[in-house]
Amino acid sequence: MTDFNYQDIDDVIHSRIRTAIMAVLISVDEAEFTFIREKINATDGNLSVHLKKLEEHNYISVKKEFVDRKPVTRYRITDIGRKAFEDYIKKLESIIKR
């Protein structure tokens, strides 16, 4: 049995909320802030912080616009984010298979 190396795990994704955000965004084309909040039951502040971190690492892209004079923020997973999430899942699967 090989020892588990924590350094192999992607820190950016490896957090309950950020993993959940990535799981939501990989399942859809594009999602509004409120949709992600509903799906993962997070507070606005907490969710914003984690979305920001994912955005800083280019795992997700953000589009801000006004709909009926109300600000709407939409998120989309990037190719970098998709690759990182797939690698993360592979890592988890390899841990289980050990």
């Binding site: 959940a20 799981a23 939501v24 990989i26 399942s27 799906k39 899942i89 699967e93 289980i96 050990r98």
Partner: peptide, 19 residues
């Protein structure tokens, strides 16, 4: 870590199906 990984994968699957 195996248990945690299994839990995490099942949570991810659930969120993805729900979304």
């Amino acid at each position: 870590s195996t248990i945690k990984a299994e839990e995490e994968i099942s949570v991810i699957k659930k969120i993805m199906e729900d979304s």
